[in-house]
């Protein structure tokens, strides 16, 4: 019997761990008179799980929407760093050869502002995301949903698509191989050909993670991947996120409400309250911060 190992790196960034990957600087976002974000600054380092927490309405999702290009911030900048020549489709070629551990130091780092880009351009730079309210393509199967994660890496040739035999089929099969590795990693084999609309909530959340991971992202943004789950499901999901982080080596920005989960799996925590950063640091530091305690539990009398 033949066994298969993971042949493709699912991380789209070969930046050395600890280098700044995403730099958010003085980001502000206002909807009319409502200030959703004001002067938010923080840095996500390569190879970490960075949690963003805060009470309801603190601006966490708005922040993520700004990064992925769905909202246009009123002021400030968001910069993605990557090793030069690795953005977008160019990464596909690198993926086909087993990626050797290259020193990022010898490569020049390129900085790209995300602030003025449309969502699809941001995605092409390697920023993948999941949504708070599941936004899967309901009528498509799990496989087709995850295949859509490969969209940025695939050529769009209409004539070849009409013909099917030839380049179109070859491309489908080539990308199917990577999709199958994602399916293996997230244990979605049994659900592969089911329409996602019929699946249980927890599995749909996992399909969203898989779809984002199939992009071979440089940065993975997860908006409340464990919302509405019971303790056991949360534990499973946390395990999958850790797998994605440790086995696939993807840098993750995570929005989460459950403090226990955040403290357990993240290396860096940014706390938002009323659109402002009130604390930033390791989980242990943040937990001791009086401002955080006040925001979450109310001031002690």
């Amino acid at each position: 019997m033949r066994t298969r190992a993971y042949q493709h790196s699912l991380s789209g960034s070969s930046m050395a761990a600890g280098q700044p990957l995403l730099e958010v600087e003085a980001l502000s976002l206002a909807f009319g008179g409502v200030k959703a974000l004001s002067e938010v600054s923080f840095t996500v380092t390569s190879g970490s799980i960075h949690a963003v927490i805060g009470p309801n309405g603190a601006g966490k999702s708005s922040l993520l929407n700004c990064v992925s290009g769905l909202y246009r911030p009123t002021a400030g900048s968001i910069v993605l760093n990557f090793v030069a020549g690795e953005e977008g489709r160019k990464r596909t070629q690198r993926m086909s050869a087993p990626s050797d551990e290259r020193e990022a130091g010898e490569k020049s780092i390129e900085r790209r502002a995300l602030t003025r880009l449309k969502p699809n351009r941001v995605a092409r730079l390697g920023v993948a995301r999941s949504f708070q309210n599941i936004e899967l393509f309901d009528q498509l199967s799990v496989l087709e949903n995850i295949m859509l994660g490969r969209h940025i890496h695939m050529k769009q040739n209409l004539a070849a698509a009409f013909l099917w035999t030839g380049p179109a089929r070859k491309q489908e099969i080539a990308h199917r191989v990577i999709v199958e590795e994602v399916i293996d990693l997230l244990k979605l084999q049994a659900e592969r050909s089911k329409p996602v609309g019929t699946l249980a909530y927890g599995i749909q959340k996992r399909v969203e993670l898989a779809r984002a991971l199939a992009m071979q992202p440089a940065l993975l943004l997860l908006d409340e991947p464990m919302a509405g789950m019971n303790a056991e499901e949360k534990e499973d999901m946390a395990r999958y996120i850790l797998d994605v982080h440790e086995l696939a080596g993807v840098t993750i920005v995570l929005i989460e409400h459950d403090m226990n989960v955040v403290m357990d799996i993240s290396q860096q925590v940014t706390v938002l309250d009323f659109g402002k950063v009130i604390a930033d640091g390791t989980p242990a530091e943040v937990m001791k911060n009086p401002a955080v305690v006040e925001a979450y539990l109310g001031a002690q009398k």
Binding site: S68, G69, L70, K118, P119, N120, V122, A123, R124, A128, R129, F131, E135, L136, F137, D138, Q139, L140, L148, G149, H151, I152, R211, M215
Partner: peptide
């Protein structure tokens, strides 16, 4: 058709 916002976030 199914989710245009998610589609654009996937790079469509």
């Amino acid at each position: 058709r199914d989710q245009d916002i998610a589609a654009s976030a996937m790079g469509v």
